[in-house]
């Protein structure tokens, strides 16, 4: 279980409070207006923002003081998921061996295998600039596979893709998440994404994170504020 226990975090003058838990293996959408604190919430879980008070726990282990890379968490950012000057193989090698960035024995095969799983067999020698946006997203997903961490955070990573491609990517993430038994949190402002991807949804309003609720019920009968946001 991923728990945020009485979290209070500040970023500038903005304050975020959160107190909830998510079952391991769940897929949860995080929905809310821009500036409501969705990304701040991910930063707290990923370790980019240290909370003022409270604890982040995974399976009862306290993560609060761990650096981002020491957490059982991988992240797909909104942009910049790959270093543009490096080949896909080197990018993925950095995920496997962050100390040296070099390829060890067997790494090439693991990388090729991960790429094949996201439909990018043979793309290892390419640079991100030689690939389409959708292909870059899939390469980033291959990175997540190689990092092999139980929690996956997605910060609107497919927002720049067209609607059809975005649906494809979400389905692929869902497939990967099922196969690897990942716990996934997806930030989005599209309610359709939430319906499609997540059985539970967290509502974030003015820096206050609610508790997970069944997506279907929440969106079918939204509270007043969510209704204003959804229009």
């Amino acid at each position: 279980m991923l728990e945020l226990d009485a979290i209070e975090a500040r970023s500038g003058s903005f304050t975020l409070t959160a107190d909830f838990g998510i079952e391991a293996g769940a897929r949860v959408a995080i929905i809310g207006a821009s500036g409501s604190g969705k990304s701040t919430l991910l930063d707290v879980i990923a370790g980019f923002l240290k909370p003022r008070s409270g604890h982040v726990l995974w399976k009862d282990a306290d993560l609060t003081d761990l650096a981002p890379a020491r957490r059982p968490v991988s992240v797909l950012f909104q942009d910049t998921n790959l270093f543009p000057h490096l080949t896909i193989e080197r990018n993925l090698a950095l995920a496997l061996n962050p100390r040296s960035g070099t390829l060890r024995k067997g790494d090439a095969a693991r990388i090729e295998d991960a790429l094949a799983r996201v439909g990018l067999a043979g793309f290892a020698p390419r640079r991100p600039s030689e690939m389409s946006g959708g292909q870059q997203s899939r390469a980033a997903l291959a990175r997540v596979l190689l990092q092999d961490r139980p929690v996956l955070l997605l910060d609107e990573p497919f927002a720049a893709l067209g609607p059809a491609l975005k649906v494809d990517m979400l389905d692929m993430v869902a497939k990967v998440a099922d196969a690897e038994a990942l716990t996934v949190l997806l930030v989005t402002h599209d309610p359709a994404d939430a319906r499609r991807f997540a059985d539970q949804t967290l509502l974030v309003e003015n820096g206050i994170v609610g508790t997970p609720q069944p997506t279907q019920a929440l969106l079918d009968d939204p509270p007043e504020s969510l209704r204003t946001y959804l229009g």
Binding site: A46, F48, P68, A69, S74, T80, P98
Partner: peptide, 9 residues
């Protein structure tokens, strides 16, 4: 952030 997430030395 990407470097931090990967834990690059």
């Amino acid at each position: 952030r990407l470097g931090g997430a990967l834990g690059l030395s």
